[in-house]
């Protein structure tokens, strides 16, 4: 049996215009940063060391500025509540991706406008947006400002350590990207998630109302 046979599908507006713009802008920035970053680390020669470093620095600083707008957006719209971690139904979601998905079972926590992340996504995206990406920006900014360390009273920092943390962060982001790109195909159809991130609308299974714990705003009626 397929999910399509058992469930009625509904179209919901999941991602606002800014959200989609931010997603694709950040993807482009991260892609360029990965390519130029690994070149600067000496993995291969593509643009040449100087160009790779110049592009990496420019794009990295642009990312810092653009990220400030994302932080503003996530707090002013209340969307940060979508990232509050929960263990509720976490095991059900893990079980689904380990077994249920192969049997065509419906997703245990389908996307809703006010709860677009399942418990596993909440945890992953919170770690990413609140820890890994800011850590990468911080170590990258420090790396870039190496010549000012003494003037800023940061002479005790070790470039070797900062570079190692920055490199480890790069690998973590690349690993995330591999899984993330694959998970795009795991919607109710192969392209459902891609379509949603381009147009904003996603086809999801119609199901009972969102449970109270999932809802982003407690002010709204939970039923």
């Amino acid at each position: 049996m397929n999910a399509n046979d058992t469930c009625k599908m509904v179209n919901i507006y999941l991602y606002t215009r800014y959200e989609r713009f931010w997603h694709w802008l950040q993807s482009a920035l991260i892609a360029v940063l990965l390519v130029t970053g690994f070149e600067a680390n000496g993995l291969y020669t593509l643009l040449g060391f100087k160009t790779a470093v110049d592009v990496h620095n420019f794009v990295g600083l642009a990312w810092l500025i653009a990220f400030a707008f994302f932080v503003f957006w996530v707090f002013t719209t209340g969307e940060w509540r979508q990232y509050i971690p929960t263990t509720k139904k976490m095991l059900l979601v893990i079980r689904y991706y380990m077994f249920g998905i192969f049997r065509g079972e419906p997703h245990p926590v389908p996307k809703r406008t006010d709860a677009k992340h399942n418990p596993l996504q909440r945890l992953v995206y919170l770690s990413l947006a609140a820890f890994l990406l800011p850590l990468q920006m911080l170590t990258g900014f420090l790396y870039w400002s190496y010549n000012s360390w003494n003037a800023w009273g940061l002479g005790w920092l070790s470039l070797k350590v900062v570079a190692a943390v920055h490199l480890a962060g790069g690998f973590a982001i690349l690993s995330f990207l591999v899984v993330h790109i694959y998970m795009i195909t795991a919607g109710h159809s192969l392209t459902a998630h891609t379509r949603a991130m381009i147009c904003g609308w996603e086809e999801v299974e119609e199901r009972d109302a969102v449970e109270e714990w999932e809802i982003k705003s407690r002010a709204k009626n939970p039923a």
Partner: peptide
């Protein structure tokens, strides 16, 4: 002295590629 481009970090590079390859294999 740590010289970017000349000096990497073998341990992190090994662990990093292991993680990336494991992700690719899992996927």
């Amino acid at each position: 002295v740590y010289l970017p481009g000349r000096d990497g970090n073998r341990v992190i590079e090994f662990l990093g590629w292991t993680a990336v390859l494991a992700s690719v294999a899992g996927v």
